[in-house]
Simulated assay, not measured.
Amino acid sequence: MKKLLFFALCCGVPISHAVADGSDSFWYTGVDIGQGYYANGGNDAAYDAARHRLAGGLHLGYQFNQYFSTEIAYQYLGKAKASYNQGAISGDIQQGVVSARLGYPVTQSLYPYLTMGGAGWVSNVEGLNNVDNEGFSPVFGAGLSYALTDNLALRAEYQFTQSLGDTAAGFTDHHLATVGVSWRFGFTPKPTPIIQEKIVEVIVEKEIAKPIETQTFIVSGTDAAALFAHNASQLISTKPLEKTLAFLVQYPDSIITITGHTDNTGSEKYNQWMSERRAQSVADFFVAKGINKDRINVFGKGELSPVADNKTEQGRAMNRRVEMVVQPFEIKSPAVI
Score class of each variant (00 low, 15 high):
Ala177Phe: 12
Ser109Phe: 08
Ala153Asp: 01
Pro138Leu: 07
Val106His: 03
Glu126Pro: 00
His174Ser: 07
Ser99Arg: 15
Asp132Val: 10
His174Leu: 13
Tyr104Arg: 07
Ser137Leu: 02
Ile93Glu: 01
Val98Arg: 00
Asn133Trp: 03
Ser145Met: 12
Gly135Ala: 08
Val125Tyr: 13
Pro105Glu: 09
Gln94Tyr: 06
Pro138Met: 07
Arg101Thr: 11
Asp166Leu: 02
Gln108Met: 11
Thr178Leu: 07
Gly135Ser: 07
Leu144Gly: 04
Ala156Tyr: 06
Gln94Gly: 13
Ser90Cys: 04
Asn151Glu: 14
Pro112Ile: 04
His175Thr: 09
Ala156Cys: 11
Asn151Leu: 07
Val131Tyr: 11
Arg155Phe: 15
Ala169Trp: 10
Gln95Ile: 01
Thr167Asp: 14
Phe160Pro: 00
Val122Lys: 11
Asp150Leu: 03
Ala119Thr: 05
Gly120Pro: 02
Ser90Lys: 12
Glu126Val: 09
Trp121Arg: 01
Asp150Gln: 12
Trp121Pro: 00
Leu114Met: 11
Tyr146Asn: 07
Met116Gly: 15
Gly91Pro: 00
Gly135Cys: 08
Ala142Thr: 12
Leu176His: 04
Ala169Asp: 09
Pro138Ser: 09
Gly118Phe: 12
Ser109Asp: 14
Val97Leu: 10
Leu176Arg: 05
Val125Pro: 00
Ser145Phe: 00
Thr172Lys: 05
Leu102Met: 15
Met116Arg: 06
Asn130Tyr: 11
Ala168Thr: 14
Leu154Gly: 08
Gly91Ala: 14
Glu134Leu: 08
Leu164Met: 06
Met116Pro: 01
